[in-house]
Design a protein around this nucleic acid. Structure first.
Lengths: 344, 344
DNA sequence: CTGAAAGCGCTTACAG
DNA sequence: CTGAAAGCGCTTACAG
């Protein structure tokens, strides 16, 4: 029977003091078993653990944070215009994977979205005030001041994707963009195609630059002509892909393959190709990049390059926790994998 | 010059004590201007504010939380199997809108995803230990024990969508499912269709139940025959919609309209219709529900019922903050809107 | 290995 | 309106 009459939290949760009394030890001893159990006798540890489970004790993080100066939480900071977050399933996948990886360490993820300059300032201020121990940063474009500001403030930071212009100063985890693009173009070549066009990402993003480099490298290796009309620049959006495909259709009507630097753009490109009555893959082969949910939404399903999102997330978390623990900045490049479906 | 030699945070951030010294007042006075400014003279307030901006002081939330017993943060708890979160853009939209609404109140959102029973237990324990002030709950299926557990623990809670079996005990915000479905079916009728089928959501979800009810009501009003073969049950996934459409095609080949209880399922249904060589909207009209990004990914684009996600989010936040402040549970039903595009 | 004590940075009655 | 003081729940040297 609830006798304290409150509608809110039932009773005050037990404190370390309650546990100490139950276990017949001092609060210091309880704290020691809580924090690794060093310098604690087996007997003491045992009775403390029994007392903890009897009382249902859970540490008060605020008290702990006040003294340790750490928050035991991490921010997932997205500095992208809101449309992209809505549209691109990659964010979804990465966010979920990071949440899960952190949960494995019992660390909550604070989601922060800086879609505007004002929001970015507010959030940067919040973070540099020490409310989180570190930041997982997701923003592909160059010229984003968040990375610099946070780094200058000494905030542990790991970016997703190589932060252009900050290499060596900011830790990051990325898929091997160049290698993945290269593999796809070789795959298109192996399927017999000889007029291979590409739709790139924005050329101020690592995915834009490096996937184009992989495309060019494969062309050079195979001895295909590097016709600049075969290259159209996209913006990672579906309609951007659609428009870029239309431009290519007009400029190089004889193209027989198309490597698109993201699945979402590939989805748009497929729409344009269909409208132009090009059959895929009979008349033109199409290869994407990401293996995002968008790759399964097309007809036929998209042949693409898989980015290992789960590993990207877990490596980001690993690097961040290491950095919080004092480790230096570093970078991890993860291999990609070609996923063969219906468009090549 | 950085003389403290640390690689981490530059210097110790200023405390309330520093501000008090700068302003020439006591720490209590600083705290009072921080907390609403009651019982503070204009002069004192002014010098405190000047000192705050001079020192760049930001309150230490852990110290504050330790004493107030509040965390000044809110959890966004998703108890859905991971596939749905990946696939359904609605989660994306709602999550972002909630993050934004909370940011307006300067409250960080903790993202928690309970895909498994073990995760649910861990998260429930964390939440009931008082690490967040309240919970925004997203889980449509009945039989989810999270809502009951949190409510029993006295945790302020607002669900997205009517929590079946908990009505009246759990606050919630929802779109008017029945009304929206009704409008769409009337719209299909108005376009001249007379054999109107439907693909429902799971019948243990409010969207499954209420949208079907709206469909039936519209059929009754228009005097159309309520043929049970016109009703197929889906599961809110794309392939689920595809399979349901195939079943309908086989059972009622003469159907000339299809109301699908989610855009994602409608996307799948469109695939099935196309394979069956039914032209949309010429041979068969299709109406969706949600106005999610999926509605723009189809050809032609999907005529659908818009759920007002921004308002849903802001109402959820408003209700939750009220409840944290001591208000009673309550429910908000928001109107929907028909968005006419290419499939009707 | 263990206890007693100081102190993290704040808020909040309590006197004035 | 304002200051001095207690105390939130924990961790961590410091003695033993």
């Amino acid at each position: 029977m609830n006798t304290n009459g409150g509608r809110r939290r039932a009773a005050k949760p037990p404190t370390i003091h309650d546990v100490a009394r139950e276990a017949g030890v001092s609060r210091g001893t309880v704290s020691r078993v809580l924090n690794g159990g060093h310098y604690v006798s087996p007997a003491a540890r045992e009775s403390v653990e029994a007392a903890i489970s009897r009382t249902g004790y859970v540490v008060n993080r605020h008290a702990r944070s006040l003294i340790t100066g750490r928050s035991d939480s991490v921010a997932f900071l997205l500095t992208e215009p809101q449309e992209r977050f809505f549209e691109d399933p990659n964010f979804n996948v990465l966010l979920r994977a990071c949440t899960q990886s952190l949960a494995d360490h019992d660390i909550p993820l604070l989601l922060m979205i800086a879609g505007t300059e004002a929001e970015r300032r507010r959030i940067t201020r919040y973070i540099t005030a020490g409310h989180v121990d570190g930041v997982l940063l997701v923003s592909s474009h160059t010229g984003d001041p968040a990375a610099d500001q946070l780094r200058d403030a000494g905030v542990p930071l790991v970016a997703c994707g190589k932060p252009i212009g900050h290499t060596g100063k900011v830790s990051y985890v990325a898929a091997d963009d160049r290698d993945g693009a290269h593999d796809m173009v070789r795959h298109l070549y192996a399927s017999g195609r000889r007029r291979i066009a590409t739709i790139t990402g924005p050329l101020d993003t690592p995915g834009g630059i490096d996937r184009l480099a992989g495309y060019r490298q494969a062309l050079a290796e195979t001895g295909l002509e590097a016709d600049e009309r075969l290259v159209a620049t996209g913006d990672y959006t579906r309609v951007g892909g659609e428009h870029a495909a239309e431009r290519l259709l007009a400029a190089v009507p004889d193209m027989d393959a198309l490597f698109v630097a993201s699945d979402l753009m590939a989805q748009g490109a497929l729409t344009a190709l269909k409208r132009a009555n090009r059959r895929v893959p009979e008349d033109i082969a199409v290869g994407g990049f990401d293996d995002s949910p968008a790759a399964l939404a097309t007809t036929p399903e998209l042949t693409t390059i898989r980015q290992p999102w789960d590993r990207i997330a877990s490596e980001m978390v690993r690097l961040l926790l290491a950095q919080i623990g004092g480790a230096d900045t570093s970078a991890v490049i993860l291999p990609t994998e070609l996923v063969s479906r219906g468009t090549v």
